[in-house]
Design a protein around this nucleic acid. Structure first.
Lengths: 151, 151
DNA sequence: ATTATTGCAAATCCTTTGCACCGGC
DNA sequence: GCCGGTGCAAAGGATTTGCAATAAT
């Protein structure tokens, strides 16, 4: 997203444009594949803006969520991780290392139908798929290849 | 699941059958729809077994996850919530209240296909759908019905 | 000038850990 | 009796909050 669009969004909500916010947004954009935690963003921002406070990072990430610039990724790994892509995509969670990878996949059924068991229970805004499994990196570590001698 | 089956599982792993574990399992089974947190289970167990410690609840829930009796629900609401149903189902998360509801839905495509963007990235064990939206309870609170006068 | 934002430190919430005692087997 | 389990209190990690100083409009 272009800066000017973000600035517009901020102004519309009486939010001020500060160097901290711009740096944090930049860090977020540089970590599109990472599903970064607040701490990771903090470390990245500190490199260019050493005086930032972790509290500011937390507050700013919350603000970015509020204005719909980023969202919280659904991962349950004990810390909040952010999804900096707002377009439709899905996730693959590695049960071994906790890593998150994006999955590109059309699931038209998720866009169109309301499952019967949800009728009358509320309004669906979107559906996403979470795949659970073991990523190739962890597979390599955990089990030797089939015909690799152990010694 | 019948107690005897659980007891069998515990014995197989050299885990002891204690009153605390049985009470915690009972509480878990009584909260199939709640996706309960450790704290909620603790409160429920305390009613029948006032001396339990919260630490024991945490440890036991972890044990139950290890033996495949329950699993961690993917919800990212700041605390760990457990899913006491191990069969295939999906979830509806209310963005307003954080509530989780089960969704029954066949998604054969999730069982069979590997999305192209995942090929070579690891091994999928299962896929689940997360619906995001607003539950009917929160809808009622947040917006007056269309033709309800405001005053 | 006004009002939001920052940075710090303290506080809070959830969860884990160390350890002495207890209880299933 | 052995070894795992329990309960307590303390520690740990992530996030939030109160507040005075600062900076954006």
């Amino acid at each position: 997203m272009k800066m000017s669009v973000l600035e517009e969004k901020l102004r519309q909500k009486n939010l001020k444009i500060t160097p901290q916010r711009l740096e944090i947004l930049r860090a977020v954009q540089n970590h599109q594949c990472d599903h970064p935690s607040a701490e990771l963003i903090y470390q990245a921002v500190k490199k260019r803006y050493p005086a930032v406070s972790l509290a500011t990072v937390y507050k700013t990430l919350e603000t970015l969520v509020q204005i719909g610039e980023i969202r919280v990724a659904i991962v349950s790994d004990g810390k909040t991780r952010y999804d900096t892509r707002m377009d439709r995509h899905h996730h693959f969670l590695c049960s071994a290392c906790g890593g998150v990878q994006d999955v590109e996949m059309r699931m038209d059924c998720l866009e169109t139908c309301t499952p019967e068991s949800l009728i009358g229970k509320g309004t669906i805004h979107r559906g996403e798929v979470i795949f659970h499994g073991i990523c190739s990196g962890c597979e390599a570590k955990q089990a030797p290849a089939p015909n690799t001698p152990l010694l």
